[in-house]
Computed example of a mutant assay.
Amino acid sequence: MSLGDDTGRTRTRLPEAGGDPYGGARRNGRSSSRSLVTVVGVVVLLIAAIAFANRGGGDSDEEGGDSPKAAATAPTGEKPVPAGAAGIPAGFAHDRQGAESAAANYAVALGSAEMFTKARRDAILQSIIVPARIADFEARLDKAYTPEFNKNVGLNSDGTTPEGLTFVSRTTPIGTKVTESSSDTATVEVWCSGLLGLAGESSTSPVTNSWFTITMLLEWTDDDWKIVTHSQKDGPTPVPGDERASNADEMAKAVQEYGGFTYAR
């Protein structure tokens, strides 16, 4: 911004340098949050205006009919796959998109609270693992989901939830990427956010958020994509926001009232 002084000269005030949120001093997030809310509000209003302007010119007596059907899955326009065995979607397309959809759905299943119960865990594995590797996966996960592990996350030793508490274990895919592929195999990375913990006043293991990337090698088997190998690493992790952490009652209510999702790209 330019400012004049009494001598007629012009002084230029340069903007102050901001800190790098990933390495330098952290900025005050309040003003940026308000700016973001404003921008998002403008974008939402703009989209609504465009949608209103582009509506079909049907008769007014048709406006009271049924609500529009759900749109096809964005961004590709392919319809979501139907639910399959163990409540997990199945019947993915035999292409890269189908492999990404399968990997995203399998990440949700593998990160669910149902994995802490052996009967449900085995049913999930039967549905998403190639037949030749099911026994290996079952044995490996039986060693991981031990009574000691259950106690570490706040559960009873048998994997059940203590009375008065709500157990949370959810994985949400943020994005997918195919790193290698052939006609019948695909290596897919799934970037995820996860919730894990117990919601409730007496909880000693509150619900926390984590970020991680799952890598799956998938194989086209029995007319669907199935997992051959599975690995996980931390991150990428964003800078935490300034939101206040919810109390135990708010978190428990949210988990009970908001269902999880299945995904199709």
Results as ranks from 00 to 15, higher is better:
residue 244 R to Y: 00
residue 159 G to Q: 11
residue 257 E to Y: 02
residue 224 D to I: 03
residue 221 T to W: 06
residue 17 A to T: 07
residue 41 G to V: 01
residue 210 S to W: 05
residue 116 F to G: 12
residue 227 I to C: 10
residue 122 D to T: 12
residue 248 A to F: 06
residue 99 A to Y: 10
residue 118 K to D: 13
residue 19 G to K: 03
residue 145 Y to P: 00
residue 132 A to C: 12
residue 135 A to C: 00
residue 143 K to V: 00
residue 210 S to E: 11
residue 49 A to Q: 12
residue 149 F to M: 10
residue 169 S to V: 00
residue 242 D to E: 09
residue 43 V to C: 01
residue 38 T to R: 02
residue 155 L to K: 07
residue 175 G to H: 09
residue 21 P to N: 01
residue 76 T to E: 13
residue 258 Y to P: 03
residue 209 N to R: 13
residue 114 E to N: 07
residue 237 T to R: 13
residue 197 G to K: 04
residue 93 A to G: 11
residue 187 T to G: 03
residue 145 Y to L: 04
residue 151 K to P: 02
residue 72 A to D: 14
residue 153 V to Y: 11
residue 157 S to C: 04
residue 263 Y to H: 11
residue 48 A to K: 13
residue 8 G to A: 05
residue 257 E to K: 08
residue 186 A to Y: 11
residue 46 L to A: 06
residue 14 L to C: 06
residue 73 T to I: 04
residue 4 G to Q: 10
residue 181 S to I: 02
residue 239 V to N: 14
residue 254 A to P: 02
residue 131 P to W: 06
residue 91 G to V: 09
residue 225 W to V: 00
residue 4 G to S: 11
residue 75 P to R: 09
residue 117 T to P: 03
residue 120 R to Y: 02
residue 74 A to G: 10
residue 258 Y to N: 15
residue 256 Q to R: 02
residue 148 E to N: 04
residue 223 D to F: 05
residue 211 W to D: 14
residue 142 D to R: 13
residue 158 D to F: 01
residue 193 S to V: 11
residue 41 G to I: 00
residue 104 A to E: 08
residue 46 L to H: 05
residue 196 L to F: 07
residue 10 T to N: 11
residue 13 R to T: 05
residue 160 T to C: 13
residue 74 A to K: 05
residue 82 P to W: 03
residue 216 M to R: 14
residue 213 T to W: 11
residue 40 V to M: 02
residue 126 Q to E: 13
residue 95 D to W: 05
residue 110 L to S: 02
residue 9 R to Q: 09
residue 76 T to W: 07
residue 221 T to M: 02
residue 220 W to G: 00
residue 199 A to S: 06
residue 222 D to V: 01
residue 165 L to V: 03
residue 157 S to M: 01
residue 79 K to A: 15
residue 264 A to F: 07
residue 89 P to K: 04
residue 179 T to C: 09
residue 188 V to E: 12
residue 168 V to R: 00
residue 197 G to A: 08
residue 41 G to Y: 05
residue 229 T to E: 03
residue 236 P to S: 15
residue 101 S to E: 08
residue 66 D to I: 00
residue 161 T to K: 09
residue 39 V to A: 01
residue 63 E to V: 01
residue 163 E to G: 13
residue 17 A to G: 13
residue 61 D to T: 12
residue 195 L to G: 06
residue 183 S to P: 03
residue 262 T to H: 04
residue 50 I to Q: 15
residue 188 V to H: 12
residue 13 R to H: 05
residue 222 D to R: 07
residue 206 P to V: 01
residue 217 L to S: 09
residue 68 P to H: 15
residue 211 W to E: 14
residue 244 R to L: 09
residue 103 A to F: 08
residue 262 T to I: 04
residue 97 Q to E: 14
residue 94 H to R: 14
residue 101 S to M: 01
residue 55 R to S: 14
residue 243 E to W: 03
residue 133 R to D: 11
